[in-house]
């Protein structure tokens, strides 16, 4: 499999309000790092999953990759071209290759647009007016398992699962190489969730598209993804093949996440690792290892020295002084 996307040391910053006084004193930087020093690769036909709590920078990273947010430093290489350096015209071509499934399926569809128009709008935006819209709408709906009747429906006439499918259909319109799916199953029942995930898996097998999935539902990660990254405070703390991470996690945060996952069967079988304290604010990042304030295994070194990534081979790494 060849490399599709390669992100190197990516940093995304947001400006925060700072008082005039502190500005004059140059006391604090008026920026927070929502994403800091993130590197990863996605191969063709691969599913890459990003896990992390709300506010850890998952969606920011996704938006930066799609080219919707300016980056502060680092590079995003897509099939050999650096997205961060692209002029607008080239960016537009890039966005044809990569498409987004938004977090809120009904919210991301215009309430005044029929499904058929919504899913063929990408053709309009990218000046592909020569295509037969009727025919294309039918083809796309068929791909995601909806009947052609849905063309004339409005978003409020769709159920949550159907709206997701329409979102997938729209994402597929331009035959993208990569689909970024932000929480594709949030708020769905287990049965409908299974349907959507099966659909994504099937489309990947049929069309060879790569998937970049963002989620905080660990139960689904195991079944859909090839590689997984765990994000904490805008950094990757662990990244590697999904199967290995689930069998033998190295970073304490990953360990805590996996042990915290409530299950129906064998309740309390896994010894739960409780995290103390609160998620620190991005404005005041902890010294040393940023996880040390909550880490149950933290030692003196962790509070002062930032750990570097440890490579366990086979593209597996964790950022911790004392990996498990």
């Amino acid at each position: 499999m060849s490399q599709l996307l390669e992100v190197n040391n990516l940093r995304v910053q947001f400006r925060v309000k700072s008082s005039m006084v502190s500005w004059l004193q140059k006391a604090e930087t008026p920026f927070i790092d929502a994403v800091r020093d993130v590197s990863f690769k996605i191969k063709e036909g691969e599913t890459f999953t990003l896990v992390g709590e709300s506010g850890s920078g998952k969606s920011t990273l996704a938006n930066a990759v799609v080219g919707l947010l300016p980056t502060a430093s680092g590079s995003i290489n897509f099939m050999g071209d650096d997205v961060t350096q692209m002029p607008d015209k080239q960016l537009r071509a890039y966005r044809k290759q990569i498409s987004m499934m938004w977090q809120n399926p009904t919210g991301s569809l215009s309430p005044r647009m029929q499904v058929g128009d919504a899913i063929t709008e990408p053709y309009k935006i990218h000046n592909l007016s020569d295509r037969d819209k009727q025919q294309e709408a039918k083809r796309l709906l068929n791909l995601v398992g909806l009947s052609a009747r849905f063309q004339d429906r409005y978003p409020h006439q769709l159920s949550g699962g159907q709206a997701r499918r329409v979102g997938v259909a729209r994402a597929l319109a331009l035959n993208p190489k990569l689909i970024v799916a932000d929480e594709p199953t949030a708020g769905l029942d287990v049965s409908v969730q299974g349907e959507i995930l099966n659909l994504l898996n099937r489309l990947q097998d049929d069309l060879g598209v790569s998937l970049f999935v963002i989620t905080h539902n660990l139960n689904i990660v195991r079944h859909i993804s090839d590689r997984t990254a765990i994000m904490y405070l805008g950094r990757f703390v662990e990244e590697g093949p999904t199967d290995d991470i689930f069998v033998n996690p190295h970073h304490p945060y990953t360990l805590a996440l996996l042990s915290a996952n409530p299950e129906v069967t064998n309740v309390g079988a896994l010894e739960r690792i409780a995290l103390k304290g609160e998620v620190p604010s991005l404005m005041h990042r902890p010294s040393g290892c940023e996880f040390h304030t909550r880490c149950p295994f933290a030692q003196e070194l962790c509070a002062t020295v930032a750990p570097v990534g440890i490579d366990f081979g086979f593209e597996y790494s964790a950022t911790c002084h004392y990996p498990r």
């Binding site: 995930l197 898996n201 079944h223």
Partner: peptide, 21 residues
């Protein structure tokens, strides 16, 4: 029964075809 079967957490083996109702 179906609902519990569908819960991805209860499926020990990795599968690309999750059960649905």
């Amino acid at each position: 029964q179906k609902l519990l079967e569908c819960d991805p957490a209860s499926i020990a083996k990795k599968t690309r075809n999750l059960p649905t109702i």
